[in-house]
Design a protein around this nucleic acid. Sequence first.
DNA 1: AAGTGGTCTAGACCACGGC
DNA 2: CCGTGGTCTAGACCACTTC
Lengths: 242, 242
Amino acid sequence: MSTTTENGNALPAYQRIQAAIRERIDAGELKPGDAVDSERELAKLHRVSLMTARHALAELQHEGLVERRRGSGTFVAPPKIEFNKLTSFTEQMALRSLPVHSKVLHAGIVESGPEIVARLSLPPMASLVFIERLRIGANEPFALESCYLSAAEYAGLTRVALNMTSLFEVLQRDFNTDLAYADEEIDATVADPKTADLLDIPRGAPLLRIRQTIFSTQGKAVLYVLGLYRSDRHTLRIRRFR
Amino acid sequence: MSTTTENGNALPAYQRIQAAIRERIDAGELKPGDAVDSERELAKLHRVSLMTARHALAELQHEGLVERRRGSGTFVAPPKIEFNKLTSFTEQMALRSLPVHSKVLHAGIVESGPEIVARLSLPPMASLVFIERLRIGANEPFALESCYLSAAEYAGLTRVALNMTSLFEVLQRDFNTDLAYADEEIDATVADPKTADLLDIPRGAPLLRIRQTIFSTQGKAVLYVLGLYRSDRHTLRIRRFR
DNA sequence: AAGTGGTCTAGACCACGGC
DNA sequence: CCGTGGTCTAGACCACTTC
């Protein structure tokens, strides 16, 4: 017997059922806590067997979109807060609806030391795009960020105005590079004279130093960022699990 | 038809199959990359239907224990590195096989300010167990940690020798408290004179400050920890996802 | 061609929750 | 009690990989 009587497309039945439920949630028709159709109802509605309806719901449960309670039913799960999410400076500030811009201090091609090249898994003599920006939110300097990328692939970045635009956005739009995750090393340091002046803090003031290697969805190290954050204006929040 | 012919226990068939596979992996009989029995083999071996064998493998795949490739088979997945894992100081040092101990500076009951009480979701006048420890690894002071817990529940902690023992372990063993996750606030500060002396660093040296609220598996805030880490001996590593 | 995982059926019994 | 999810059967066809 064929999968459906009126076939034609390629989407499995259980995925069609999931899509239908997702749509009802996205449309606001179903809110957190509301009951979703039961397995038996879904089976009748979509003319599939119980196992297929069950499969659809089981996956949605695993995704965290619904909760299932034996004897009771299937319910839309409350929205989950996402922890340890990699967000750009622009996105973080937008969440707090703060006016934000950057002052580009440098943007060019450099021959850098072996350390940064190694972090990007590039050959020892590779040249790099180097962008240094002072990050400003609510008219106060927040952070000093130095970004490094392979010049071979991202030389065009030096011609993009990055004072108002998110680097993440430019990489996605103009270079078709989607970022996936970042490995970060976090420690504390003190402001040297030049940094202190730029960030408008006393020399010797404590700074949070975050060194990120950011990887694309293809698993390639795309971006190395050294960030110095004013500790009086910045707290990093993370959640760790046992 | 009954679930099995020779029933008696309560474990579902698919979980017995999973357990059998897990055992073979734990025993080293199956290594990463090795092929696991196919659905059909498992079905015959355990005398269950294909769907049941399939269910067992599908869950193991979702857990990340095995990888399944259509047309090819099911294989033991390479071990995954766990990121952002909540580990005790003792566990971290054990990973680097460094000799480790602690010097208990204080251990007693205190009436603390409103902030810490609030972080533990306790009534305003609640008294707290306060334990201050200097953490020492490789014969060098690493960090200064102040722990706070509800005195009503954990008063017995003041009588436990915590200079060589992990607090996490004591909570689990003696208080039946399993920890699940921690919300952490991370910033930078400078060493005050007392802290500088204890950590054997210059006054004004940068410190990584981590404030943790640690929750039990029941979702209760159990422990508040204020940690000051020598930035020349400590780097926090995390991975963040987009 | 043979074997694998992916999807699916049309039933079944059980354990649990709420009324 | 009835409806819910949880487990399970004994098959089937398909898409894919490997040889």
